[in-house]
Design a protein around this nucleic acid. Structure first.
Lengths: 212, 212
DNA sequence: CCATCAATGTTTACGATGTTAACATTATTA
DNA sequence: TAATAATGTTAACATCGTAAACATTGATGG
């Protein structure tokens, strides 16, 4: 009955992955508050203590789910950059737009990343041992922040050759990151009252003002 | 023993206020995760079911606490504006700085406002009946968003007379709000890696770039 | 091929929590 | 002063995270 290419685990073929997958689904359906270990276990047809064989506790499972979301996020940002191989300014614009679009389309991911301390955990573990290029055991390109950071670096060379803008790198990164992060949150959480296409408005801001 | 000017309630003089007050304290001390109705009740020397006489459920208490925080926040923004009675640009700069400073100094408030759906609740209730100038039964000046919105309005008249900046009001508000909101979150949650005075960096961004 | 063992899943139990219902007490008021 | 509404308490229940004891299964070495 159970056809599976990679029979990594026995009893339940790769329960670990299924917990993450079903957990992400539960998170989407019931939101962060409605999320519980026991529900995830039930969704996997498994006793409520089974997850403890794969995750130290609830936070560890949420962290793993967050890694999954973060990987998709990184991929989305990287795709945006790749659209403009030789145009740092457009790279940054498109990446900013993707940033906002991602969280607008996945509001629960935003909650997840905000609530769990994923970012801090990732930053810590990346300093530890593996040079910062690994999300737990999930093979992944990069931390979203690194993608953004380097995009800003390239952007900086462009705007400095044109105008004599003297913002240093740190300030510029905080400016760019803060802007897209804040807009993402306001739109995603529907805190910005506006009758119209929020994403279009955001796009206009990035293209015509912030990163123009 | 119990000396109190306003004996609003009997058994326990004004338990409702004390629940909010002790709740805010608990939130500061133990964070959002460590917050529980029963702990708050215990902090007030009251049975764990007593809060239900004053709040429909846990969320309602958290909402009330959030209102309290929001009122402080509004006050902080208003103070910033008042520093520059006749200079819209400086008003916006100073308000943006206060915005960031407030959340940097009260990280738990940020979590609170983010986690509870305070903003949405306020927006809804402000459309209902009272014209948007009331936080539940807490008398308060204004919703922080309104203060910001009107500051941007005034700012807009200034920048349009100087340059021919054609951003419409909505875009400009989202730009300003998103920027300070995002920077607040990144700094408050220590997600922005920087060895230096974060607040100074933020101030520089607002003064020399974003709202210059 | 079988015995051992580690990996994985189950059952049971415990304490904390949110919530409700039934009851008790106090302040207000008719 | 009696009735009533407001407020607080106690008891109970379901859910939850977590841990310990136990069971089962797949892998491994003789």
């Amino acid at each position: 009955m159970n056809i599976c290419l990679v029979q990594e685990n026995y009893h339940h073929d790769d329960l670990k992955s299924e917990l993450i997958e079903k957990g992400l689904k539960l998170l989407d359906e019931e939101g962060y508050e409605g999320f519980s270990l026991r529900k995830v276990a039930k969704a996997c047809n498994v006793s409520h203590a089974a997850p403890y064989r794969h995750f130290k506790n609830k936070d560890e499972l949420i962290l793993a789910i967050g890694m999954e979301a973060m990987a998709k996020f990184s991929q989305s940002l990287q795709n945006a950059v790749n659209q403009y191989p030789d145009d740092p300014r457009s790279q940054l614009k498109e990446m900013g737009y993707s940033y906002i679009k991602f969280f607008t389309e996945n509001p629960e991911y935003l909650r997840l990343i905000f609530l769990s301390d994923i970012n801090k955990r990732i930053n810590n573990s990346s300093q530890d041992s593996n040079g910062g290029h690994c999300f737990a055991d999930k093979e992944i390109s990069e931390h979203p922040f690194e993608i953004l950071y380097r995009a800003v670096e390239r952007y900086k060379t462009v705007i400095q050759s044109n105008t004599d803008n003297s913002m240093d790198q740190d300030a510029l990164v905080l400016y760019c990151w803060g802007l897209v992060h804040g807009i993402s949150i306001l739109i995603s959480r529907k805190e910005f009252p506006y009758q119209g296409d929020h994403l279009e408005l955001a796009r206009k801001i990035l293209w015509e003002k912030a990163f123009a």
